[in-house]
Design a protein around this nucleic acid. Structure first.
Lengths: 235, 235
DNA sequence: CGATGTTACCGTCACTATGACAGTAATCAC
DNA sequence: GTGATTACTGTCATAGTGACGGTAACATCG
């Protein structure tokens, strides 16, 4: 029992990693950001973006850095911790604890190559199977989290740009839930929720009556704002 | 680039720990299981039960083992991962990643001493402040998770024994939320939700009309069953 | 120019869920 | 018995819900 406290000698010290489930909605379909691995293990397989944390980094900082390296930009949107996996039976190289994160963001296009992975790409979630490591399960957990959060929070707003139409917002719900929603009832609920504010009229250019534009209500944080009453996903 | 894949040389390897926010309801008050630390750092301070993971252990297994060591029993109730904290600025001995867990359970009495902590004890959450490490924050996160989960899931059932009265179940909600609920409306909602099943009549012994006993509906898992419609906490 | 198709928006209606509250039933203590 | 205590049942006005019919404003085509 030394006076200066030390770790127990037998403390487990796994490598610390992060993985990111980055979701977006492209042309009415839910997509996830994937990279192709250039190194072993699982070389050539698709995987979630991620990697090992650097000294002094928090998992959140590591997630942001990895996204910047593998996707070329400081990620927009909403980033939150998903859950933690490991350390056993995840990586043939040894014990790894991975703190998975969930990013909900508008689609961005500058997908650069970097790090130990080829250029990242958006992949339809329905086609994202057979991923490296335990990433199939992490993706499934991230999808379920996203689907559940849309019911009771304003997080659908994280998927779209600052100005948007109600149809765009509805398309987010329909893509994430994979179900059609009644446009009229959806408008009523969103407009009555107070989370959005009129922002002019959308310019013409497409057939049909021009839609009204909206933006997030001032002082409202989509990440923490509760949706009241909620919008429940259909069975 | 060796053919046999290895970890990056500069991979961070923090110690892996678990902490447990173990909540229960005792005499209509929400309580958390705390231990008094016998070793540095934070010697003498109250802390959440927890400790370092052993080789080959999952965080969940480590949480169950630590609860058994510090509280004397294999914990009943519902155990889930809460979130992960660290690795920086948590422990003066160095970087520690702690995977916090949330346990919702009926109160149990065999609180034994063990490990590097004095006997565990149930403490009213309103009095649980000034904990060691970042445990004040972990406790706050666990409380918020528990309060939110009671709205949309059947997890309140994890707090009470197999057979219970509706008043007991309502007492769980009132203790966790710190708010009074209308007994008549609560009964209507719970009975209409289909999550419980009649199980006879409570024996007399106390003043008042004897209450009906209920048990969890067959085939229903309180951890995953959705409460529909939800029971929203009052503002 | 008008006809047609497309998209967005507005309103109605029956039904359900909700909060608030009044009243009844069954026990215990005395 | 009386009163106190706890449990249970029912009512009612109002808000929220899903389903759906109709109207408004654009583009494109003949």
């Amino acid at each position: 029992m030394a006076q200066t406290a030390q770790f127990p000698a037998d403390a487990v010290r796994p490598a610390l990693a992060v993985d990111i489930v980055a979701l977006t909605v492209r042309s009415r379909r839910l997509s996830v950001l994937l990279v192709r691995r250039l190194l072993e293990p699982f070389r050539g397989r698709l995987a979630l973006p991620g990697g090992f944390a650097l000294p002094g980094e928090s998992p959140r900082q590591a997630a942001i850095r990895e996204l910047a390296e593998e996707a070329g930009v400081a990620p927009p949107g909403h980033l939150e911790q998903l859950r933690t996996y490991g350390p056993e039976d995840r990586d043939p190289r040894g014990p790894v604890v991975s703190v998975a994160h969930l990013l909900l963001a508008p689609a961005w296009g500058d997908l650069a190559s970097g790090g130990d992975a080829a250029a990242a790409a958006w992949v339809d979630v329905a086609a994202a199977r057979g991923l490296a490591f335990d990433h199939d399960r992490i993706l499934a957990d991230g999808l379920e989290r996203a689907r559940a959060k849309l019911e009771y929070s304003a997080l659908a707003l994280a998927f779209i740009p600052a100005e948007f139409t109600i149809a765009q917002l509805r398309a987010v719900y329909e893509a994430v839930w994979g179900a059609a929603l009644d446009a009229r009832n959806f408008s009523r609920k969103i407009l009555g929720s107070g989370i959005i504010q009129p922002a002019g009229l959308a310019g013409p250019g497409r057939p049909g009556r021009p839609a009204r534009l909206f933006r997030v209500a001032p002082g409202l944080d989509p990440a923490s704002a509760a949706l009241n009453p909620p919008i429940i996903r259909p069975a």
